[in-house]
Simulated assay, not measured.
Amino acid sequence: MTRESYRAQLEQLREDVLYMSEVVTERFRTALSALEQRDEDTAWDVIEGDGEINELYLDLEQDCIDLLALQQPVASDLRFIAASFKIITDLERIADLATNIGDYTLEAGEERYPDVDVQGIGDAVLGMVEDAMRAYADEDVDRCRAVARLDDEVDASCEHASDGVVRNLIETELDGPVDTDVNALMDDVSRLLLTIRDLERVGDHAVNIAARALYMIENDDELIY
């Protein structure tokens, strides 16, 4: 294989990883919209589209394996391929979490806690994923570190939201005579807490992407550990 062909394969891998990220982020954005609108048809679109993401992941995984096995890359090229391999894994897991949100939309009961800003948290973690992928695309170390810093704010928002749900449940819903279906109440609360947890996990995957991008760019494992 000529040097030019090898470089073209590496560039194609970058473009394909970025394409996968566009599909995943759009799927996640759609899942958030379905949840906000209680749109079951859109939720089903998200759930049924998960197979496309899995196929993209497997194709790119094979591309990474082939480059590692057949080209024996060294130094920066090796870091790029390894980082790309890890990043597509995080993207596939974000897509799985989008599917979870689709499932929660189908199972949604009464909206008991409208003050919990699920959409705000969702928008924040989506922005983190997009920024992490820009860092990968542009080899931007400052953006890598900025994504990691934002994670603390997202974690705090998720903790505040979860604490508020539990506190409200204790103080108002279950304090005194229960005038509602306890099973339905607990199902709704559980779904909301799971939604918050999954959004927090999306933020964690965004940090993983930023960490691998930083390692790829500067051989710096600061954000990995």
Results as ranks from 00 to 15, higher is better:
A135D: 09
R79P: 03
L60V: 06
R38T: 11
E4G: 05
Q37A: 15
A206R: 06
A211G: 09
E222H: 07
L13Q: 00
I87Q: 00
I170S: 15
I88P: 00
T42E: 06
A146P: 01
H205T: 02
G120V: 08
N183C: 03
A135M: 05
Y136G: 02
G122A: 02
A75N: 12
L214D: 13
A108C: 06
V118H: 04
R212Q: 07
G120D: 15
L169M: 13
G49S: 06
L18M: 13
D16L: 01
D90I: 05
S33D: 11
V23C: 10
D41I: 09
A82G: 12
G203T: 02
R14N: 08
A69V: 15
Y136P: 02
A43L: 10
R191C: 14
M1K: 14
L106W: 05
C158Y: 01
C158E: 06
A161C: 13
A43F: 04
D50K: 00
V125T: 10
L70P: 00
A82T: 11
A148Q: 06
A8C: 05
L169N: 07
A137Y: 02
V141W: 06
L199I: 13
Y19T: 08
D45E: 10
D123E: 15
R3A: 15
V182Q: 03
L35V: 03
R7N: 11
L192P: 00
L106F: 06
E107M: 05
E110W: 10
S5F: 09
D204L: 07
V125P: 07
D66I: 02
S21I: 15
E171F: 12
S157V: 13
A135V: 14
E171P: 08
C158L: 12
D188P: 03
L18Y: 04
R149A: 12
M216V: 04
E36F: 07
E171W: 12
Y57I: 01
Y104S: 13
D155R: 02
Y215V: 05
V207G: 00
I53K: 05
A210Y: 03
L192C: 10
T89S: 09
I53S: 00
R212T: 03
D63S: 14
C144M: 01
D90H: 11
A148K: 06
I53A: 06
A34M: 11
L32I: 06
D77A: 07
G51N: 09
D163C: 15
R38I: 09
T89F: 02
Y19N: 14
D131P: 05
E173F: 10
S84N: 08
L70A: 03
G176E: 14
R3S: 09
T99P: 00
L214M: 13
L70H: 02
L214A: 12
D63M: 14
V189G: 03
L223V: 07
R212N: 04
V125A: 12
S162M: 10
D66E: 13
Y57W: 07
V46H: 04
D117G: 06
R167A: 14
